[in-house]
Design a protein around this nucleic acid. Structure first.
Length: 865
RNA sequence: GGGGACGUGGCGGAAUGGUAGACGCAGCGGCCUUAAAAGCCGCAGCCGCAAGGCGUGUGGGUUCGAGUCCCACCGUCCCUACCA
């Protein structure tokens, strides 16, 4: 009896799968298709436990669907453009291209070791010219449709690194790498018109019934549709250029009679118009200083300046309101101007109290009296009846909104409008390692698309990173070209595309990764949408929204047939680990984190104590956190594979926690999974070799085992379908405990026959989770072929359902006994049995039975007092 | 400020409104061993010798029956944020 040796077994089976090329997907496979995809990884060069969890999850489903008879597409690629490669170039003098492809090569190995059932023939990286060239092709089609455009926009500019930073890269107003104070700069940038699809993207969410509600809600909030009124206020005396008045946007036209001031954003054109006044100029300077970091907004005080201008109320020509510049008004939402109704908006109220502006309530809560209702320091934002409002008096808030809009529209001063929080997607990046935007700028022709026969626009290799800024911009020759339109000297666009563009269509490219057009429509029609997409929830409003937008845009371009890229979505939790840090005397000193590999544990006086292995120094056990370099709580998968085996690692991440929740990595946990692997093998190893004897249901023990076997099949499959892998694994553990009670008896016994059946089922049920072990077991059973190609077992319905059931008997909801009856026994008979039961009747002594509830085959409850 | 999720043993967690705590980890006892490790067999929510009682964050409600449904509160976590 040889102990199972994963180190020897696992590579052997991976080779067998590769040799047989079992995971290659044929486009002409007639079986029902199933497209499963995990969010493709960034090639950092290191696989981490999050990858193990993500890709194992997908692999469990992929292998299960294969066994269920689906043609499964399970491809793999690399999200390979982006800043880390350029940072490496700047820090270490390596080339981003070499660095990236080296990383891909380094990561491909552990991904293969993980044993996932991936069709590697479809692999590509987004930095392959073959891929990004096709991306340029469809970008130009979007440009032609007006979905891509250029405009001047305010961006975060890092003056040291001389580059634009994304909002996420600005930390407390400083560049994340340079630590320089970030400036707001106006630059001409490329945008994708995602706002054209705002309504469509909201509506589409309703069709995504296999997405988590949470993600759908996050997208809905992010798009932020609001219904309101655009309203133009006439100036009492109009400043030059604003003769038409000042347009504001409001969602509360019902509160127009409660208005007490107008306020414009500091970067509103009117504010700029007035900045010749030194008071205004000073104030605008003050506002810009603040920066836009969240912390500053949080504690930020509301600042305002009265411009001295006044406007006329739309419903009362004698009513004049002051126009202020206020720091809390945002230029890029609505019209950049608001009317303030302090009584019914908290920000307006704060502002009004500070600058002693009038506060006039116009919405009366149901329980309040008009004479006594007062606004203190809290605005009233609830429902009620309108008052103090002339023609709207007595209306509900909703009625008044409609009435005000109608009146304003009739006066020609505005229009009901829908406004979105969502902004167009700025895709320009002043960076080298991205997809070049295929445009040539010509003095006379303007921006000209690069002609199709000159695509792809390939990144030049001879670039330098010794000084900050965009290497493409300072490249001596690359940008100098002739205008494709007029032939004059012209310059290439040196911005590259946001890497989120790369990941917005890769799932469609997998249908045929070497097509001569961006998307092979026939292949895409066969495979899309992705039946099951799996990834982290952190992409809920970034990647997952962008991909939905691009899919729609490409559909409208006729390149795709589906509007939704991912019909099923699952967002998995993170892999966490305990943290360890050196005890410190000075509370202000920096934490010194210690890697788990350097820590030993003992239990002293019932308390778990962590010590540094080498020195014995006692450590502080910190929080359980996402594995990260900074906390040094990372456990490398490769080491775990080596120590415990790949299957044990896979099994542990699938079994310990529900998949949507975080899982804490513990060595004890993976050891437990490893024990299961060995115990499974021991059962197969103990089975007598040779053909199994015939099944014999007249043997009670054998029949018992057969029942357990057939009862197992449904729940395990169900747990995979419903993404409850931990429960499925628990069922397998439970079954093994049952199986062990039936020792491999002498050859030819009924129990041995039942065991043979149990093992054959078990090998197929563990296959999704521990595929290497499953193959070894299958081989041990003497089966021909590999278990990877075996069908999912079918449960015998008669065996899987009991013909006897144990019914608990409750008295007033407390369990007092049980009766065993044949399944489907009539209620009256069950009731009689229950009342006759000795342990029940003891508790009924002195009580009168009022009612007996019998739930067939489930429970009996006796109501008595 | 707005939105969402979640509170079950020492720990991770099971439980279509129907026997709460499956399964695993840690723990305890035993077997095996010269010994240890591994392995195997058992025990194990809490109080209690037991009978029994109490138990799913707290307080109410619906129900024959609530971890599960409803209301309020407390706590933890996540997302989002001067969005007019």
């Amino acid at each position: 009896m040889a102990r199972y040796n994963p180190k020897e077994t696992e590579p052997r089976w991976r080779k067998a799968w590769a040799d047989a090329d079992v995971f290659r997907t044929a486009d002409n496979d007639p079986r029902p298709k199933y497209y499963i995809l995990e969010m493709f990884p960034y090639p950092s060069g290191r696989m981490h436990m999050g990858h193990v969890r993500n890709y194992t999850m997908g692999d469990v489903v992929a292998r299960y669907k294969r066994a269920q008879g689906h043609a499964v597409l399970h491809p793999m690629g690399w999200d390979a453009f982006g800043m880390p490669a350029e940072n490496a170039a700047m820090e270490r003098g390596v080339h981003p291209k070499g660095w990236t492809y080296d990383n891909i090569a380094a990561m491909r190995e552990p991904f293969k070791v993980l044993g996932t059932s991936i069709d590697w023939s479809r692999e590509f990286a987004t930095c392959d010219p073959e891929y990004y060239g096709q991306q340029q092709r469809w970008f130009l089609k979007l440009l032609k449709r007006g979905l891509a455009y250029r405009r001047e926009a305010t961006v975060n500019w890092d003056p040291v690194d001389m580059t634009v930073l994304a909002n996420e890269q600005v930390i407390d107003g400083r560049g994340w790498r340079s630590d320089a104070i970030v400036e707001k700069r106006k630059l001409t940038q490329w945008f994708l018109r995602i706002t054209d699809y705002a309504d469509d993207l909201i509506e589409g969410l309703q069709t995504l019934d296999r997405w988590p509600d949470k993600v759908r809600l996050m997208q809905e909030n992010w798009i932020g549709r609001s219904q309101g009124l655009r309203l133009t206020w006439k100036f009492d005396t109009a400043p030059e250029g604003f003769e038409n008045g000042l347009e504001v946007y409001t969602t509360r036209p019902d509160t127009l009679y409660g208005a007490s001031f107008l306020a414009i954003a500091p970067d509103h054109p009117l504010a700029e118009r007035l900045s010749s006044d030194p008071r205004v100029a000073d104030f605008l300077k003050e506002c810009r200083k603040g920066g836009a970091s969240e912390a500053e907004i949080e504690g930020g005080e509301k600042l305002g300046l009265d411009t001295g201008l006044s406007v006329v109320h739309p419903f009362d020509p004698t009513w004049k309101l002051p126009v202020w510049i206020a720091n809390f008004v945002l230029m890029d939402y609505g019209t950049g101007a608001i009317f303030g109704c302090p009584a019914h908006d908290q920000r307006d109220l704060d502002f009004a109290r500070k600058y002693a502006l009038p506060v006039k309530p116009v919405v009366l809560p149901g329980d309040a009296h008009p004479a006594t209702f007062m606004i203190g320091s809290e605005a009233y934002v609830g429902p009620g009846k309108i008052f103090n409002s002339d023609f709207m008096d007595g209306m509900t808030v909703e009625q008044a909104k409609a009435a005000a809009v109608t009146r304003v529209e009739a006066q020609g001063q505005g229009k009901g409008a829908v406004v979105y929080r969502l902004r167009d997607w700025g895709v320009s990046r002043q960076r080298y390692w991205g997809c070049p935007i295929p445009i040539v700028h010509c003095q006379s022709c303007g921006p000209v698309p690069v002609p199709d026969d000159q695509l792809p626009v390939v990144l030049p290799d001879d670039v330098t990173f010794d000084i900050p800024g965009n290497p493409l911009l300072r490249h001596p020759t690359w940008k100098n070209v002739q205008c494709p339109s007029c032939g004059a000297d012209a310059q290439r666009e040196t911005d590259t595309l946001d890497t989120f563009v790369d990941s917005s269509w890769y799932f469609a490219r997998f249908a045929n990764p070497h097509a001569k057009e961006p998307i092979d429509k026939a292949a895409a029609d066969k495979w899309l949408g992705v039946d099951q997409y799996i990834g982290g929830v952190e992409h809920a409003v970034l990647h997952l929204l962008y991909a939905r937008f691009i899919t729609r845009a490409l559909k409208d371009e006729g390149m795709l047939s589906v509007a939704e890229p991912f019909t099923g979505l699952f967002t998995q939790g993170m892999v966490t680990h305990e943290t360890y840090k050196a005890a410190k005397n000075d509370p202000d000193s920096k934490d010194e984190w210690i890697e788990p590999a350097c820590v030993d544990f003992t239990t002293e006086a019932g308390v778990r104590v962590a010590r540094v292995k080498a020195t014995g120094e006692v450590l502080v056990i910190g929080d359980i956190e996402k594995m990260s370099k900074s906390k040094k709580n990372v456990v490398a998968p490769e080491g775990i594979f080596d120590t415990y085996g790949v299957d044990a690692a896979r099994l542990f991440v699938m079994s310990d926690s529900p998949p949507e929740r975080d899982v804490e990595w513990t060595n004890a946990g993976v050891e437990g999974a490893g024990r299961f692997v060995h115990r499974v093998w021991a059962e197969f190893d103990a089975q007598a070799e040779g053909p199994a004897p015939a099944l014999d249901d007249s043997d009670a023990a054998a029949l018992e085992l057969r029942r357990a076997t057939h009862k197992l099949i449904g729940p395990v499959g169900d747990s995979i379908e419903r993404f409850r892998f931990n429960s499925g694994v628990a069922k397998l553990y439970e079954f093994l405990n049952i199986l062990k009670a039936y020792p491999a008896a002498g050859a030819g016994s009924a129990v041995q026959a039942a065991r043979a059946e149990a093992l054959e089922v078990l090998a197929r049920l563990i296959n999704p989770f521990t595929p290497h072990l499953a193959e070894a077991c299958w081989e041990r059973l003497g089966k021909t072929g590999m278990v990877v190609d075996a069908e999912w077992p079918k449960a015998d319905a008669a065996l899987a359902s009991d013909n006897e059931v144990t019914l608990p008997v409750q008295i007033n909801g407390k369990r007092r006994g049980e009766v065993i009856v044949a399944k489907g026994t009539a209620s009256a008979d069950v009731e009689a049995l229950a009342l006759a039961d000795a342990s029940v009747s003891v508790h009924l002594a002195g009580l009168t039975v009022r009612k007996v509830i019998v739930v067939q085959d489930r429970i009996i409850n006796i109501v008595a007092n």
